[in-house]
Amino acid sequence: MGSVRTNRYSIVSSEEDGMKLATMAVANGFGNGKSKVHTRQQCRSRFVKKDGHCNVQFINVGEKGQRYLADIFTTCVDIRWRWMLVIFCLAFVLSWLFFGCVFWLIALLHGDLDTDYKDDDDKSKVSKACVSEVNSFTAAFLFSIETQTTIGYGFRCVTDECPIAVFMVVFQSIVGCIIDAFIIGAVMAKMAKPKKRNETLVFSHNAVIAMRDGKLCLMWRVGNLRKSHLVEAHVRAQLLKSRITSEGEYIPLDQIDINVGFDSGIDRIFLVSPITIVHEIDEDSPLYDLSKQDIDNADFEIVVILEGMVEATAMTTQCRSSYLANEILWGHRYEPVLFEEKHYYKVDYSRFHKTYEVPNTPLCSARDLAEKKYILSNANSFCYENEVALTSKEEEEDSENGVPESTSTDSPPGIDLHNQASVPLEPRPLRRESEIGSRR
C-alpha cells in the first residue's frame, strides 16, 4: 500500500517518465508532432483561472445545437444578457408577425380586404367582416399587437362572423401568456443567479507553507467582502497533476483530494472575517514527500473551492481559484488583518494578500521532518523571529508614515537576534492585533 500511495502522490514527473511517455506515443502511432509532453521546463496551462473560470474549450460535440435547444431554459439562463435581450425582442416580434399574417390571411380569404370602410357607412358590411377595420397587412399586424398586449384601442375587434378568427384570438392570448411567463422566468432566474456573489468572495493571491502546531501546513486565505453571511460555508481543495499509471496509461489531469478537515468538520467555516484555511501535510497528503526545492521545480495546480448558500436567496454559490506551484510561498505567513478595537473588531483588507517571511522554516519535506531528519529550532526562537518579522513590518510602515526611528523597538546594537533566540524570552503579545485562523 505504501508503494502504491507514493506512486499515486508523486508530484514532480521525472525525466524517465517523460521519455517513457514519448516512447509510448511513438510506439502507439501518436508521434505526429502534435502531442505535447509536459516536462519541468514546460509548465501546463492553468486549468482553473484565478477568477474561477475553467480554462476549457469543448470541440467536436455531436448534436450540440439539439442538446442546447432541448434544455432551452438553461440555455437562456446561461447566455449573455445581450443575447437574452435579442431573444426577448424576437420572441414578441415574431409572435406578433405570425398572428398578424394569420389574421391577414383570414381577412384575405373572407374577402374583407376588398371592402373600403372609410367611404361605406353600411354597418351590415362591417358585421360581415371577420375582424372589423382590418383591410391590410398593417392593420392585421396592429390588431395582433393589440390582442397579445391587451391594449385594446377599440377600432379593431373580432366579430362572430368567422369562428376561426375567434379561435385565433383565444389562441394568441394563451401563447402570449406562455411567452411572458417564459421570458420573465428566465430573466428573473438569470438575475437571481448567485454567480455575481463570487465577486465579493476573495482568495489570497498566494498560498503559503509554514509551520503550525509543530507541523508543516499548506495555507491559503479566504474572505467575504459583504456583511451578509454565506450560510453553510465549506471549503474543498484538489491537486491536479499528470501521472502515468503502473500499466503505462497517461492521465493528463489526475485529481487528488486535499484534506482540509472534512473528517473532523473544520472544513465548515464561519466566514465573517478572513480565515486562513489549513491543510496539514501528513502522510496522507500529496505534498508529504515534497521539499522546498521540489515545490520550486514541480508542475501541478491546486484548485480551491468555497461553497455556501447566499443568505438573501438561499441559492448555492461556488467560488473557485487555483494556485500553481510557483504561487506557493515556502516559509511565509499571512499578515494579520483582524484588529481588536474598543467595542468592535476591524478588518483591514489592505493586508489581505500580504505575507511575511518566517525565518528558520524547515526546507525539507514533511516526511523528513516526521522522521527527525531535520532538527527544528527552539520553539522560543521560532516565536521570537516570528515577532521580529512582524515588528520589522510595523517599523517599515512607521518610517513610511514619517514616525521617528527613535520610537521604534530596535534591538541594541551589536546583538545578533538569531543568537539571542536560544535565550528564554518573556511572551510578547501583539500590541493591538490578533489573527483569527482556522485551528486544527
Score class of each variant (00 low, 15 high):
2 G>W: 02
3 S>V: 03
5 R>K: 11
6 T>G: 07
7 N>D: 14
8 R>A: 10
20 K>D: 12
21 L>T: 09
22 A>I: 02
25 A>R: 11
40 R>L: 07
45 S>N: 14
47 F>V: 11
48 V>A: 08
49 K>Q: 09
51 D>V: 03
52 G>T: 03
52 G>D: 02
52 G>R: 00
54 C>A: 12
54 C>Q: 09
55 N>K: 11
56 V>W: 11
62 G>V: 07
62 G>F: 15
69 L>D: 08
71 D>P: 13
75 T>R: 12
77 V>E: 07
78 D>A: 14
78 D>K: 12
80 R>G: 04
80 R>F: 07
83 W>I: 01
83 W>Y: 14
86 V>N: 13
87 I>C: 15
88 F>G: 13
89 C>F: 04
93 V>L: 15
94 L>M: 03
95 S>Y: 02
96 W>S: 05
97 L>V: 04
97 L>H: 00
98 F>G: 04
99 F>N: 00
100 G>E: 01
104 W>D: 00
107 A>T: 08
107 A>V: 04
107 A>M: 03
112 D>Y: 01
113 L>Q: 02
115 T>H: 06
116 D>N: 05
116 D>I: 15
117 Y>K: 01
124 S>W: 15
125 K>Y: 15
127 S>E: 04
130 C>D: 02
131 V>C: 01
131 V>I: 11
132 S>G: 06
133 E>Q: 14
133 E>P: 03
133 E>Y: 07
134 V>I: 06
139 A>D: 15
139 A>V: 00
139 A>G: 15
142 L>A: 03
143 F>E: 00
143 F>H: 01
144 S>F: 01
145 I>A: 09
146 E>G: 06
147 T>F: 02
150 T>E: 03
150 T>M: 03
153 Y>K: 06
154 G>Y: 03
155 F>Q: 07
158 V>P: 10
163 P>M: 11
167 F>N: 02
167 F>G: 08
172 Q>Y: 02
175 V>G: 04
176 G>H: 04
177 C>W: 15
178 I>A: 11
179 I>W: 09
180 D>I: 15
182 F>G: 03
184 I>S: 04
185 G>H: 06
186 A>R: 14
187 V>S: 06
189 A>D: 10
189 A>N: 13
189 A>G: 13
190 K>D: 05
190 K>I: 09
192 A>Y: 08
195 K>T: 12
197 R>F: 10
197 R>V: 10
198 N>I: 13
199 E>D: 10
200 T>N: 10
201 L>K: 01
201 L>H: 07
203 F>V: 04
204 S>K: 00
204 S>D: 00
204 S>C: 08
206 N>T: 07
207 A>E: 00
209 I>L: 05
209 I>G: 01
210 A>L: 09
212 R>Q: 14
214 G>H: 14
214 G>T: 15
216 L>R: 00
216 L>E: 01
217 C>N: 11
217 C>A: 14
217 C>S: 13
220 W>K: 00
220 W>C: 06
221 R>P: 00
221 R>V: 01
222 V>Q: 02
223 G>W: 05
223 G>A: 10
224 N>M: 05
224 N>S: 10
225 L>D: 10
227 K>L: 07
227 K>R: 06
230 L>G: 10
232 E>H: 13
235 V>L: 04
242 S>G: 14
242 S>I: 08
242 S>L: 14
251 I>N: 13
253 L>I: 08
256 I>A: 07
262 F>A: 06
264 S>M: 11
268 R>Y: 09
270 F>Y: 11
271 L>F: 10
272 V>P: 07
276 T>D: 13
276 T>L: 11
280 E>D: 09
281 I>V: 03
282 D>V: 10
282 D>H: 06
283 E>W: 03
286 P>L: 00
287 L>Q: 01
290 L>R: 02
290 L>K: 05
291 S>Y: 00
291 S>N: 11
295 I>D: 00
296 D>L: 04
296 D>V: 09
299 D>R: 05
300 F>H: 01
302 I>E: 01
302 I>N: 00
305 I>W: 11
307 E>D: 12
308 G>S: 09
316 T>I: 06
318 Q>C: 11
318 Q>V: 09
320 R>V: 11
324 L>V: 08
324 L>I: 08
325 A>K: 03
326 N>C: 11
327 E>L: 00
329 L>Y: 05
329 L>F: 04
331 G>D: 02
332 H>L: 01
333 R>K: 12
335 E>M: 05
335 E>A: 06
336 P>C: 10
336 P>F: 01
341 E>C: 05
342 K>M: 03
342 K>W: 04
344 Y>W: 11
344 Y>V: 14
347 V>Q: 05
349 Y>W: 05
349 Y>D: 10
358 V>L: 10
358 V>I: 08
359 P>M: 10
360 N>V: 04
363 L>E: 13
365 S>D: 00
366 A>E: 00
368 D>H: 05
368 D>R: 03
369 L>F: 10
371 E>H: 04
374 Y>E: 15
377 S>M: 04
378 N>T: 09
380 N>A: 07
382 F>L: 13
385 E>D: 08
385 E>V: 06
386 N>M: 05
390 L>V: 15
391 T>N: 05
393 K>T: 14
393 K>M: 13
394 E>V: 10
397 E>I: 09
397 E>G: 11
402 G>V: 04
402 G>F: 10
403 V>C: 08
403 V>M: 13
404 P>Q: 12
404 P>L: 09
406 S>E: 15
407 T>C: 11
408 S>Q: 13
412 P>Q: 10
413 P>Q: 11
414 G>L: 01
417 L>A: 11
417 L>N: 14
418 H>S: 09
418 H>C: 09
419 N>I: 10
423 V>D: 14
423 V>M: 13
426 E>I: 05
426 E>L: 05
428 R>Q: 11
429 P>S: 15
430 L>N: 09
